[in-house]
Nucleic acid binder design. Structure first.
Length: 802
DNA sequence: GATTTTACGTA
DNA sequence: CGTACGTAAAATCT
C-alpha cells in the first residue's frame, strides 16, 4: 500500500524517514506509530510545529519484516530495486515542487537517498547539500527508531533538530570564509610566531599530527581565532624537511610561543605530552581543553572534535579529508577547536560547579602526562620466568584435558568449546544473562556458565577448562613488548574515555560516538606516544603485577582510601551505627580495630541476626558482606541466591532482613528517584554535576545510585594526586592511579617521610548535609607491585623528625 | 585485511 | 536485572 507524505504545500521543512512501520501501514500515514510519537515530542521540544512540516518516507511501502534490505539488490544497500528507484524519483519530484528550505534526513536510508552517502554516525549534525535535488539543504540525524533502541542518541537528535530549525528560515547555506594557511615558508612562519607572541591578543588553539603510532610530530597547526589557522609541516614522510639548524629554529620559536601563550586544545594532554617527549617543547599554560569542557557540561555525550563541531557550529564536515589533505585538515581542526571553545567557555563560566569541575580536571593534565611518559619499570627476568612457568602449566593442562576428552580443543574458541560442551558432552545449553527479556537468547561458554555446569555435573572437565582459560588470559598480560628501557606505558584518560584505541594511521579519522559515563574516574588505555605493554594498567591481575617493580634504591608505596564508597554512603543515608564505627576506627591500627570488632560486615551481620558482635562467626560475616554488596550494587534476590548458594526465597528473606536494619537505604534511593523526576542532575559532595540522559528505567536508577559515592571518591583521589604532584612532585614520583589508590616511587630511606606527605595530601575533609568527615588512608610497601605488604602509618610517625 | 563477537581482567 | 573501563583472540564479513 503506497503511503504518501503529508503536510502543507508551503512547508519549509521536509522531514524524511526510511519506511512505514506496522502502525503507519494501518493508518496509511507516515510517522504515526511509536517512532512518530517520539518524533513529535522531540519536534515540540525544539519548537518545530509538525503540522507546518512535510513528513514522509523514502520507501512508500512497508518492507516484509520491516527489513529495509528487502528493497535492495545487494547486501551493502547501494543498489536499489526498481520499486525503490521509482520511489526515489517520486521523492525527487516532490522536493522540486515543494522547494523546502531544509530537509531533515532521518536515518541511514534517508541520508543515502538524499546525498548518496552512507554512515549516519559520521554525517549526522552536519549541514550538507542534497545530491538528489542540488541546492537544497539537508541535515541528517538518527532515525527516531534508533533513539527508541538507544536512548542516549536522543540528546544528539534534539540538538540536530534545533540546528535544522535554526537553518530553516531561508534556503541559503551559512557562509564559510575561514582562512587556512597551509603553504608558508619557514622564515614567514617564524615571523608569524613572533606576531602571535607580541601582537596577537588572547589564546591560540593548537593541534599536532604524528607520522604513525609512537611516531614523530610532522604537522603543527595553530589557530588564532575561529577564522584563521596556520598549518606547518616539519617532516616529509619520515624525513626532515629542513636542515638541523633550521629545524631547531622552528622548535625554539614554537617553544618560545608556548611558554607564554594560553593554549586551547582538544584532548590536549596528547599534544602536550608528545611535544614534551619528542621535542622538549613545553606548553606552560594549557588553559582550556575542549574535551574536558565537553565532559563537564555533557558528561554522557560523545566528545570527539567531530561531534562537538557538529553541535557547536554550522560549518561543514571535514573529518573525512584527513588523508587527501592532511594540512588543510589540521588547520580545520584548529579552527573548529576554537569555535567549540567559544561555545563551551560561557557554559563553564555560568555555572560555578562546572567551573570547579573544569579546573579540577584541567589540573590533572600535567601529572597524568608525566605518568604516561615515565611508565612502569618491568623486570625482564621475572617476566621471562613467569612466561615460561605459565606456558609449561598450559602445556600440562592441555595434555590432561585432551587426554580426558580424547581430542584437541582450543578453549579460547567459544565455537569449539560450545561444540564440545553442548554437542559432544551433551550438557544442558547455557545462555548469556540478558539485560532485558527482549534481547535474543545467546548460547555462552563463559566462566559463569562453566561454573554452573561444574556444580551441576561434577565433571572434572569443566574445572580443567576453566583453569586453562585462566592461564591463557594471564599469558596475555605477561607476554607483552617492553620499551628499550624495559618499561611499559599507559595513557590515563581523565574524562574516562579513550581517544586512541585505533591504529595511529586512522586515529584522526575516528569518530568516538559511544557514550561514556565515567563518574570522575580515570580510564587507562594504550599510550599512542609510547606503545609498550598491554595498554590498560588498571586491569592488571595480581600475578602479572609481580614483574612490575621499583628501580634500585626505590620502593613502591601504595596509599588507598579505606572502604571509601561505603563511608560516603553511610554519611549520605545517615547510617548512625556505621558512622560511629568509621569514626571510632579512624587512625586506628588494623590489629586494634579487628580486636574491637570494628568491621562493617561483622556489624551488619550482628545487627541482621541480633547476635552480639563478638559472637559473629565467619559464615555470618560472609552473609553480612554479601548482603551489603548486593544492596550497594542494587542486585536482586537471584544474584544473592547465586552468590551464597541458597534459594531465591531465602535470599529474599535475607534482603528483607538487611532492609530492616538499614531502612535509610531505600528511603535515600526513592529520594534519588524523586529528585531525578524534577531535575535529572545529581551533585556529588564536591559539587560535580551529572546530567543523566538515559531512558526512565531501572538502569537509570542504578546508575544514579552509584554516582554520588563513586564520583566523590574519584574526585577526592584525583584532587589528592594533584596536591601531591604540585607540592611534592620533585621529591617523590607518582607511579600508578587505581581509582581509589595512588602508588608512588619512594627512595627506600624516605618511606616514612613520604607516608606522611601522602597522608597530608590525601586526608580530605568532606561535608555531607552539614556534617564533616574524613576517609582514612591505608598504606602498603613493596619492591614489586605484585607483592605489597601492609604497613601501619603509626610506625613511621614516631621516628619522624621534621 | 577489516570488522564484529565473545570473553575477561581490575576497581 | 552489577557497573564502569580496555584489550585479546576467534569468528565473520568483504
Amino acid at each position: 500500500m503506497y503511503i504518501s507524505s503529508v503536510g502543507p504545500a508551503t512547508a519549509q521543512i521536509f522531514i524524511i524517514g526510511e519506511a512505514p512501520g506496522a502502525e503507519e501501514e494501518r493508518q496509511l500515514k507516515p510517522f504515526c506509530g511509536p517512532s512518530g510519537d517520539l518524533l513529535n515530542n522531540m519536534l515540540r521540544e525544539v519548537g518545530i510545529n509538525r503540522h507546518l512540516c512535510r513528513v514522509g518516507n523514502v520507501c512508500k511501502e512497508r518492507p516484509p519484516g520491516n527489513d529495509i534490505r528487502y528493497f535492495f539488490e545487494d547486501r551493502r544497500l547501494l543498489q536499489p530495486k526498481k520499486i525503490l528507484a521509482d520511489w526515489i524519483t517520486d521523492l525527487k519530484r516532490e522536493i522540486r515542487e515543494l522547494q523546502p528550505n531544509m530537509i531533515i534526513a532521518l536515518g541511514d536510508t534517508a541520508l543515502w537517498a538524499l546525498t548518496g552517502e552512507r554512515g549516519i554516525t559520521a554525517a549526522r549534525g552536519y549541514l550538507t547539500q542534497s545530491t538528489l535535488v542540488p541546492g537544497i539543504k539537508v541535515l541528517p540525524t538518527y532515525h527516531p527508531a534508533a533513539v527508541l533502541r538507544d536512548w542516549g542518541l536522543r540528546f544528539q537528535v534534539m540538538l540536530d533538530l534545533k540546528k535544522a530549525y535554526d537553518n530553516s528560515h531561508d534556503s541559503t547555506f551559512p557562509k564559510d570564509n575561514r582562512i587556512c594557511v597551509t603553504s608558508i615558508s619557514l622564515t614567514e612562519y617564524l615571523k608569524y610566531l613572533e606576531y602571535l607572541k607580541h601582537e596577537h591578543k588572547g589564546p591560540v588553539t593548537l593541534d599536532i599530527e604524528t607520522t604513525r603510532l609512537g611516531g614523530n610530530i610532522d604537522i603543527v597547526g595553530i589557530g588564532e581565532s575561529t577564522q584563521k589557522a596556520v598549518s606547518f609541516r616539519i617532516l616529509n614522510g619520515r624525513e626532515p624537511r629542513f636542515s638541523p639548524d633550521a629545524e631547531i629554529k622552528f622548535w625554539l620559536g614554537l617553544a618560545d610561543l608556548l611558554e607564554t601563550k594560553p593554549v586551547i586544545m582538544q584532548n590536549g594532554k596528547f599534544d602536550m605530552a608528545s611535544l614534551w617527549y619528542k621535542n622538549r617543547v613545553l606548553i606552560k599554560n594549557f588553559y582550556f581543553d575542549t574535551l574536558i569542557a565537553a565532559h563537564v557540561v555533557w558528561p554522557e555525550a560523545p566528545r570527539s572534535l567531530g561531534f562537538l563541531t557538529s553541535i557547536c557550529t554550522n560549518y561543514p564536515r571535514w573529518k573525512n579529508t584527513s588523508k587527501e589533505n592532511p594540512m588543510l585538515y589540521n588547520a580545520q581542526d584548529c579552527l573548529n577547536t576554537f569555535s567549540v571553545y567559544e561555545t563551551l567557555r560561557p557554559e563553564i563560566e555560568r555555572n560555578e560547579h562546572h567551573a570547579w569541575t573544569f579546573q579540577h580536571e584541567m589540573s590533572q593534565n600535567y601529572p597524568a602526562a608525566m605518568m604516561e611518559i615515565y611508565g612502569l619499570h618491568v623486570d625482564p627476568l621475572t617476566q621471562s620466568q613467569k612466561i615460561q612457568e605459565i606456558k609449561l602449566k598450559i602445556q600440562q593442562a592441555e595434555q590432561e584435558l585432551n587426554g580426558i576428552i580424547g581430542k584437541k580443543v582450543n578453549v579460547k574458541s567459544p565455537k569449539q568449546l560450545s561444540n564440545l560442551l553442548y554437542v559432544d558432552l551433551n550438557l544442558p545449553i547455557q545462555y548469556k544473562r540478558r539485560k532485558t527479556r527482549f534481547e535474543p537468547k545467546r548460547v555462552t561458554t563463559d566462566a559463569e556458565a562453566l561454573n554452573k555446569l561444574s556444580r551441576a555435573t561434577k565433571s572434572p572437565v569443566l574445572q580443567k577448562i576453566l583453569s586453562l582459560k585462566k592461564l591463557y588470559k594471564l599469558l596475555t598480560f605477561l607476554d607483552i613488548e617492553l620499551s628499550p628501557e624495559n618499561k611499559v606505558h599507559t595513557c590515563y584518560n581523565i574524562t574516562g574515555a579513550t581517544m586512541s584505541n585505533v591504529k595511529a594511521s586512522e586515529a584522526f579519522v575516528r569518530e568516538v560516538d559511544d557514550s561514556y559515563k565515567s563518574f570522575a574516574r580515570w580510564s587507562s588505555s594504550s599510550s599512542i606516544i609510547l606503545p609498550y605493554g598491554s595498554g590498560n594498567l588498571q586491569n592488571q591481575p595480581k600475578e602479572a603485577r609481580v614483574m612490575m617493580t621499583a628501580p634500585p634504591g626505590y620502593v613502591i608505596l601504595q596509599a588507598d582510601y579505606m572502604q571509601a564508597e561505603a563511608v560516603v554512603v553511610a554519611y549520605i543515608i545517615n547510617d548512625q551505627s556505621l558512622i560511629r564505627m568509621f569514626k571510632e576506627s579512624f587512625g586506628m591500627r588494623k590489629s586494634e580495630a579487628a580486636e574491637r570488632g570494628l568491621d562493617v560486615h561483622k556489624i551488619t551481620a550482628s545487627q541482621m541476626f541480633g547476635v552480639p558482635l563478638n559472637e559473629v562467626s565467619g559464615d555470618l560475616r560472609t552473609i553480612g558482606k554479601r548482603l551489603r554488596h548486593a544492596n550497594n550494587y542494587s542486585a536482586g534476590p537471584g544474584v544473592v541466591a547465586n552468590s551464597l548458594g541458597i534459594s531465591i526465597t531465602e535470599a529474599k528473606k535475607l534482603l528483607d532482613m538487611y532492609h530492616n536494619i538499614c531502612p535509610q537505604l531505600r528511603i535515600w534511593q526513592s529520594n534519588i528517584q524523586r529528585h531525578l523526576q524534577t531535575s535529572r542532575v545529581l551533585e556529588n559532595l564536591f559539587g560535580r554535576q551529572h546530567l543523566f540522559m538515559g531512558r526512565w528505567d531501572d538502569n537509570l536508577f542504578r546508575s544514579a545510585y552509584s554516582y554520588i559515592p563513586q564520583s566523590t571518591v574519584g574526585d577526592m583521589l584525583n584532587a589528592a594526586l594533584v596536591r601531591l604532584y604540585n607540592k611534592y612532585g620533585s621529591d617523590l614520583h607518582i607511579y600508578i592511579q587505581l581509582h581509589d589508590a595512588v602508588y608512588v616511587l619512594s627512595k627506600e630511606e624516605e618511606v616514612g617521610l613520604n607516608i606522611r606527605r601522602m597522608r597530608e595530601c590525601m586526608l580530605t575533609p568532606l561535608t555531607c548535609r552539614g556534617t564533616e568527615f574524613t576517609i582514612d588512608v591505608d598504606f602498603s610497601i613493596g619492591k614489586s607491585w605484585g607483592k605489597m605488604q601492609d604497613v601501619e602509618y603509626q610506625d613511621y610517625i614516631t621516628d619522624a623528625e621534621d
